[in-house]
Design a protein around this nucleic acid. Structure first.
Lengths: 135, 135
DNA sequence: CCTAAACCTTATAGTAACTATAGAGTCAAG
DNA sequence: CTTGACTCTATAGTTACTATAAGGTTTAGG
């Protein structure tokens, strides 16, 4: 038999999200202020758990805090459409793909540099020369 | 005929790096303190320009500040070997490749989600359901 | 019943790598 | 000689947390 309310530590162990981070999400307005016990402890219910999971899942997908806020805002209004949510996912997908392509450029630049190296024991290094290059 | 010394603004336009950033690199110890004019203006020479370029090029390759510091440290000691530098490049390459593979995981998760969407006009969205999911 | 561990509270500062701002001094051109 | 462009320092803001200090509460053991 599960209690209706649980403390921040329980919410933390249920989600794997540290108490400080939970308090932080409340502070920045992603989580609603939960009810409090007489002594001032935060008390969460299943809705609070669901909302934190929403945040954590979105975070795992690489959404920024602002995007998560937007997503939650859609959901909170209650009148979001599947279309709107999909647009956010597509936007995020675009950003991820952009980052991947940027990193691939770095990857090939770095591997080109590594190829240039003759692994010599002397301070005569084509990589260092490249890094110092003016213009 | 180019003057030997130039101000931070000149260094900025020669490199595309903003004056504030240049001062910042000095503050965190990546750039040496340059000589100063009588009135206290920073005066850079060709060595300063080369060093800033080294930092900027390393940055473009995705090296963290700490890695750049390490690279510069190697170079400053004067007795670095090509091997050591290549090891840093390989380490960076490894990190970049790790990031790429992590992002690819996100990419496929997001594109799977997008596929699930039926672009309906109703607040009945499989993506939102997934995000709220507990466990 | 008491105490000590394990929890909870707030407020504040630190992290990376800058960017922006305020308030003041300096230099070159018209 | 004054105006505008430049420079200076010091400080605060950014993202998304994490860590710390200094204290109150709850619970389990002896």
């Amino acid at each position: 038999m599960t209690e209706k309310f649980f403390t921040i530590g329980k919410l933390s162990s249920k989600t794997g999200c540290k108490p400080e981070t939970i308090r932080y999400y409340e502070q920045v307005g992603l989580l609603f202020e939960p009810t409090r016990s007489e002594s001032g402890y935060r008390l969460y219910d299943y809705d609070g758990l669901k909302r934190l999971n929403f945040i954590l899942h979105s975070r795992e997908l690489g959404f920024s805090q602002n995007s998560i806020r937007e997503l939650l805002h859609l959901v909170d209004k209650g009148e979001y459409t599947c279309e709107q949510v999909e647009a956010m996912v597509q936007g995020q997908l675009k950003e991820i793909r952009l980052k991947i392509s940027q990193l691939k450029v770095l990857e090939s630049a770095l591997s080109d540099m590594a190829q240039k190296c003759e692994k010599g024991k002397t301070p005569d290094c084509p990589i260092v020369d490249l890094l110092f290059k003016v213009d």
